[in-house]
Computed example of a mutant assay.
Amino acid sequence: MAVQIVTDSTCDLPREIVEEYGITVVPLTVFFGEEALLDGVEIGADAFYERLGTSHDLPRTSQPSAERFRQVYEGLAGETSEIVSIHLSSKLSGTLNSASVARDQVAHGGLHIELIDSYTVSLGLGLVVLEAAAAARTGASLENVVAAARRAMDRVMVYVAVDTLDYLRRGGRIGRASSFLGSVLSIKPIVGIEDGEVVPIERVRTRRRAEERIFELATADGRAKALFATCTGDRDATQELAARLRAVLPHTDVRPAMLGPTVGVYLGANALGVAILHGD
């Protein structure tokens, strides 16, 4: 039986990829006030960003429970005895801890579950998951699937230009990018993920320059293996960025993807970014 891949909804992988590779996605929960909505199940990207623009409530998020993970792992037990469960950085969420509790609860059933802290999030996590899923689909052993994920972790970079750091600040996920706080309003911060937390990359003066800088960062390695392009809440802009990148990166698998509700809580609308998987 093939190794099964489990991840969480912050991977932001498009549904067609999840289905193609048979990846199991455990949803986080997004709250508007007291209303709880499962990310990607009860609320998708389009509905989330539309609501974000009109809501008086600042949304918040919650990690999946250990019970939800237990149900997922036990549900896969009929298909496999080996699972690789890959999740967003433990410095940003307690999701991995919930998965760890669930693994301990089902350990007696002969199910071998390998947990991986990706030390990244969103489409960076998605690229790590995709590499593991590709290995699993070829019939690779548990050890080789884990190795594929860890190799990808060393080669993934995420860059995002945000309109404001306010969502990250209020959500408590700003990390070292707090050094950008207090900048004049016209400055557009570009942040990344390093060692599992949000870090400052640079500041630019206009939205147009932010767009160009993201493009420059995305194309600096002309032979990256894979790349996801995104603009939160704007499918047309996402498609346009992906098309522009494809034109200059003929050897890179460039795909558009929407950032889902959980990640959107911390980035807000109009964030523009790329996740890059560099070659071996």
Rank of each mutant, 00 (worst) to 15 (best):
D195N: 15
L272C: 03
L88S: 11
S89Q: 08
V18S: 06
D166R: 10
Y167Q: 13
C11N: 12
T95F: 03
I174F: 04
G44Q: 13
L92E: 08
S122Y: 05
S100K: 08
L115F: 04
G273F: 05
R15G: 09
A2M: 14
I83Q: 06
A243Y: 00
V199Y: 08
Y73V: 03
R223G: 00
I17H: 01
S122T: 14
R255M: 12
S81Q: 14
V199A: 14
R176W: 02
L125I: 03
F48K: 12
V158R: 06
F69I: 07
A140V: 01
T138P: 00
E212R: 15
E16H: 13
S178H: 12
V274Y: 01
V274M: 04
T29D: 11
T29A: 08
A177R: 10
V156R: 05
G268K: 08
G33A: 08
T219P: 02
I190S: 07
A226Y: 01
A36N: 08
T164A: 12
R170L: 10
R169A: 11
I276F: 06
M1N: 13
A132I: 02
L13M: 05
V162H: 05
T206R: 10
L58S: 08
G273D: 09
E16S: 12
Q239F: 06
G40R: 10
D46G: 09
Y266T: 14
G268Q: 05
D163Q: 15
A269N: 05
P59S: 10
K188G: 03
D163Y: 06
P189Q: 11
R209T: 14
N270D: 15
L241S: 07
Q105I: 06
E79M: 06
F69V: 12
V101S: 02
D163H: 13
E74C: 01
Y119N: 09
D8Y: 01
A77R: 15
R207K: 14
I214R: 12
P200A: 15
R137I: 00
T164L: 04
E67G: 15
I5W: 04
I214N: 09
A229E: 09
P14E: 10
E20Q: 15
